[in-house]
Simulated assay, not measured.
Amino acid sequence: MRQIPVDTSAAMLMVAQPPQPKIKDRRTGEIAVDLETGAQLATIDVVFLMAGVAEVLSVVVPQPGVSGELVMGAPVAITGLIARPWENEFNGQKRHGISYRAAAFTALTPAPVKA
């Protein structure tokens, strides 16, 4: 599967929705796990602001890669963000999109306000 590295160095990143378990099977509630490590996966919605454009991305990350308090509006750093184009066909209808995965999310403390 093709993976495209995403450069976040010029972007401002904020938590839109805190981490939620990534559900593998909605019927059973089974939580998805990383195939390499066996770690449970979480989904974090993040506001990606760059060049005057804001987008909300849903990013999958292994639970051990989540550090700090990731509350709504908190600034974050994302390590190892990649985009993966995908396409599938179901009942004769083709669907496609881009999924995002990261190695880690780290909460950033806002800079102190100078008086």
Score class of each variant (00 low, 15 high):
Met1Ile: 08
Met1Tyr: 12
Met1Asn: 11
Pro5Val: 07
Val6Tyr: 05
Asp7Ser: 08
Asp7Gln: 10
Thr8Arg: 02
Thr8Lys: 00
Ser9Gln: 02
Ser9Lys: 03
Ser9Gly: 00
Ser9Ala: 05
Ala10Asn: 11
Ala11Leu: 03
Ala11Ser: 11
Ala11Ile: 02
Leu13Met: 03
Leu13Glu: 02
Leu13Phe: 08
Leu13Asn: 03
Met14Thr: 15
Met14Ile: 07
Ala16His: 14
Ala16Arg: 11
Gln17Glu: 14
Gln17Phe: 12
Pro18Gln: 15
Gln20Cys: 09
Pro21Met: 07
Lys22Tyr: 08
Lys22Phe: 06
Ile23His: 13
Lys24His: 09
Lys24Tyr: 11
Lys24Met: 09
Lys24Ser: 10
Asp25Pro: 05
Arg26Asn: 13
Arg26Lys: 13
Arg26Pro: 10
Arg27Cys: 04
Arg27Leu: 10
Arg27Gln: 11
Thr28Met: 08
Thr28Tyr: 09
Thr28Ile: 04
Gly29His: 05
Gly29Trp: 04
Ile31Ser: 07
Ala32Arg: 06
Ala32Ile: 00
Asp34Trp: 13
Leu35Tyr: 14
Glu36His: 15
Glu36Trp: 15
Thr37Ser: 13
Thr37Cys: 04
Thr37Ile: 01
Gly38Phe: 15
Gly38Asn: 14
Gly38Glu: 14
Gly38Ala: 13
Ala39Ile: 09
Gln40His: 12
Leu41Ser: 03
Ala42Leu: 11
Ala42Phe: 14
Thr43Leu: 09
Ile44Pro: 00
Ile44Leu: 09
Ile44Val: 15
Val47Met: 02
Phe48Ala: 00
Phe48Gln: 00
Leu49Gly: 04
Met50Ser: 09
Met50Leu: 06
Met50Gly: 06
Ala51Met: 10
Gly52Ala: 00
Ala54Thr: 07
Ala54His: 01
Ala54Leu: 01
Leu57His: 13
Ser58Ala: 13
Val59Lys: 05
Val60Leu: 08
Val61Tyr: 12
Pro64Trp: 03
Gly65Val: 06
Val66Cys: 10
Val66Phe: 04
Ser67Ala: 07
Ser67Thr: 13
Ser67Val: 08
Gly68Gln: 12
Glu69Leu: 14
Glu69His: 14
Leu70Pro: 12
Leu70His: 10
Leu70Ala: 07
Leu70Asp: 09
Leu70Lys: 08
Met72Trp: 06
Met72Asn: 11
Met72Asp: 13
Gly73Ile: 01
Ala74Leu: 01
Ala74Tyr: 06
Ala74Thr: 11
Ala74Glu: 07
Ala74Phe: 04
Pro75Phe: 08
Pro75Gln: 06
Val76Gly: 06
Ala77Lys: 14
Ile78His: 03
Ala83Phe: 09
Ala83Arg: 03
Pro85Arg: 04
Trp86Gln: 00
Asn88His: 12
Asn88Ala: 10
Phe90Gln: 08
Asn91Glu: 10
Asn91Arg: 10
Gly92Gln: 01
Gly92Glu: 01
Gln93Ser: 03
Gln93Phe: 04
Lys94Gln: 02
Arg95Met: 10
Arg95Val: 10
Arg95His: 15
His96Asn: 11
Gly97Lys: 00
Ser99Thr: 11
Arg101Ala: 11
Arg101Lys: 09
Ala103Trp: 06
Phe105Arg: 03
Ala107Gly: 02
Ala107Tyr: 05
Ala107Gln: 08
Leu108Cys: 02
Ala111Thr: 03
Ala111Ser: 03
Pro112Tyr: 05
Val113Ile: 11
Val113Met: 10
Lys114Asn: 05
Ala115His: 09
Ala115Asp: 09
Ala115Gln: 07
Ala115Gly: 12
Ala115Glu: 09
